[in-house]
């Protein structure tokens, strides 16, 4: 038997926000649903959102889930997390946020949290008129044909969750869990991603172009990639002044950086540098980014 947390069992036995949302046909309020999974895969989620158009905010969220205990609990958790937040904030919700809300999930069940994140994205993209298929597959090759998992989905989950083994990838997106003939390919992909962590500037530039061309919001991973590239450009200037900068974290639109050496010791220069970096990042990546210096 699976070792489920109290929270998982509670949301399974007493789920919150189950069901669909009727369109109230009210001005300024939109209703949309996003869908992932299928009956063949053994789990599927239809996530319904009620959106306040003006504020770009989620007024209500409900779910319909076909799946196991943790799939139902993950869906219910997701609706609790996203009620009342803006769509941009919702796009920053990762599968880890869902798993954390539940007090953790058995690793083999992490795909339930990924399903939540994907349904959320599908719903928001649908609302914003972004082609879901394009995002889902992005021309990425199908790696696992048993569960229909593309290279890009594997990439995303590997990067977002720091996965290092094929078994982990299987637990998160099911890839490799059927006939397991794609195991070697997934292994290669993980190795490639690890190498790519040292991303070349040209590759990131290409990503900016793709994102712009498709007019889609940036994911946290893309933001991190782009911020890294821009910081690489800034670093030589700081180094010249005896300082340095390192990306610490990206949370939503907040970019946390560590300022080192000469820059870190002087509060006025810290403020100046912070602003300089912020301006560059806003210009190159997203106008809404905020830079925060952490020690």
């Amino acid at each position: 038997m699976w070792d489920y947390s109290e929270k998982v069992l509670d949301l399974f036995y007493n789920p919150k926000n189950q069901g669909a949302i009727e369109d109230p046909n009210q001005d300024g309020v939109a209703v949309v649903f996003g869908e992932v999974g299928s009956i063949a895969c053994g789990d599927a989620l239809r996530l319904h959102l009620k959106i306040e158009v003006e504020a770009d905010k989620i007024l209500d969220a409900r779910f319909q889930t076909f799946g196991c205990t943790s799939a139902i609990a993950s869906s219910s958790a997701l609706t609790e997390i996203i009620k009342g937040i803006t769509l941009d904030a919702a796009l920053n919700i990762s599968n880890r946020d869902i798993a954390n809300y539940l007090g953790g999930l058995p690793e083999e069940k992490m795909h339930c949290s990924v399903m939540g994140q994907e349904a959320l994205e599908a719903a928001i993209f649908k609302y914003r008129g972004i082609e879901v298929e394009q995002h889902e597959d992005d021309d990425g090759a199908l790696i696992c044909s048993c569960f229909g998992v593309s290279e890009n989905r594997i990439r995303r989950v590997v990067i977002e969750n720091n996965l290092t083994t094929v078994e982990q990838v299987t637990s998160y997106v099911k890839a490799g869990g059927g006939c397991s003939s794609c195991g070697a390919e997934i292994e290669d992909l993980i190795a490639a991603i690890q190498q790519e962590k040292e991303l070349t500037a040209s590759r990131v530039a290409a990503e900016i172009a793709t994102a712009q061309a498709q007019n889609r919001p940036l994911t946290t991973v893309q933001k991190i990639n782009l911020v890294q590239t821009v910081l690489q450009e800034v670093r030589p200037m700081l180094l010249a002044d005896g300082g340095d900068v390192e990306l610490y974290d990206v949370e939503g639109d907040t970019v946390k950086v560590v300022l080192k050496g000469a820059c870190g010791s002087c509060s006025s220069s810290t403020a100046t540098l912070k602003n300089a970096i912020e301006v560059r990042l806003r210009e190159r990546v997203l106008p809404t980014l905020i830079v925060e210096a952490v020690s």
Binding site: G42, D43, G177
Partner: peptide, 27 residues
């Protein structure tokens, strides 16, 4: 889905089993 049925039965102390993917962890 079978695992959800089994956990629901478990609430009543009823033990059965399922051929569903989620019970085995094999997908």
């Amino acid at each position: 889905e079978g695992e959800a049925i089994l956990l629901s039965l478990d609430q009543y102390g009823i033990c059965a089993s399922s051929g569903s993917a989620c019970t085995s962890g094999s997908l």
